[in-house]
Amino acid sequence: MARVEIRLSGEGGQGVILAGIILAEAAAIFDGKNAIQTQSYGPESRGGASKSEVVVDEGDIDYPEVRRPDILLALTQEACDKYASSLAPGGTLVTDETFVQSPPKVDGQVYSAGITKIAREKLGKEIVANIVALGVLVALTGVVSSEAIERAVLSRVPRGTEDLNRRALQEGFTAGETILHRV
């Protein structure tokens, strides 16, 4: 697999930074690929828009930043509006339909999943929306293996929350697979 660029976007508090780190760890540690994670710092990291970027490559990674993401996750309408145009041609945009009412037209695939709604209603904890999102993303794109993402999630989340996060990831997988079957 050649270089894949992923941008996870949303707003402060939605856990996109952690999601990016987990995704990079899944690729680097558990799938044996190379990965780099970067994020925006400063005022941007407190509330408002938030983004976390990951580059995955089987070979070495020179330029560390994301230019045109092949995979874009948008958890808010604002993030979606801001970044949708940056999607690489033929890329994949995944939005959280809980907050993104009008996904824009892009040259690529657009998928919508009720990410935050699933976290809230099926898991009872909105805070795991980022993990649900990872499940959706992995099911839809296969950017990392499902085993790798599960191990990466479990090695990062606080002790005592493993079960909740495992279920969150599973719900994400299911939602993603459902979309694929529908398509």
Partner: peptide, 10 residues
């Protein structure tokens, strides 16, 4: 520099 210092890499 800020890029090398803050990026996470394998």
């Amino acid at each position: 520099d800020e890029v090398v210092a803050h990026m996470r890499e394998k």
